[in-house]
């Protein structure tokens, strides 16, 4: 699924990663638990999360996750954006809840990791 499609299905705003907007993800994973994210061994995953701090970006860096959708309109700090840019990540934010965002993406064909 393309970034643009993810944004349309979840009414998400693009926070950073403009130059990577052609990126595609093959599956989605929703979690607020970073140790769970660190266990992923799939590539090209969209992380859907309500955990919005620097650790989310660090975790994504280590887990090789390059697209993150933050739910419930969480506030993304300049520090997070800086680290995300260094790692060429795409960050998006939606007002939808985790349940709704995951549901919409699943219904529209984004595969689950597990």
């Amino acid at each position: 699924m393309k970034i643009q499609q993810i944004r349309e299905f979840t009414e998400a705003a693009l926070v950073c990663g403009e130059t990577n907007r052609e990126k595609e993800v093959l599956s989605g994973f929703a979690s607020d638990l970073m140790s769970d994210v660190l266990r992923l061994d799939t590539g090209d995953v969209l992380l859907i999360t309500g955990l919005c701090n620097l650790q989310t970006i660090r975790t994504a860096e280590m887990a090789e996750v390059s697209c993150i959708l933050f739910v419930r309109g969480k506030k993304i700090t300049p520090e997070m954006i800086e680290l995300a840019n260094e790692n060429r990540m795409v960050l998006m934010t939606t007002e939808y809840s985790m349940f709704r965002a995951a549901g919409e993406l699943y219904l529209n064909g984004l595969a689950p990791v597990y």
Partner: peptide, 15 residues
């Protein structure tokens, strides 16, 4: 609150 503390860290390291 930082997204850790589920008791998965040491098992993840071992793995």
């Amino acid at each position: 609150q930082m997204g850790f503390g589920a008791g998965m860290g040491l098992p993840n390291m071992k793995k």
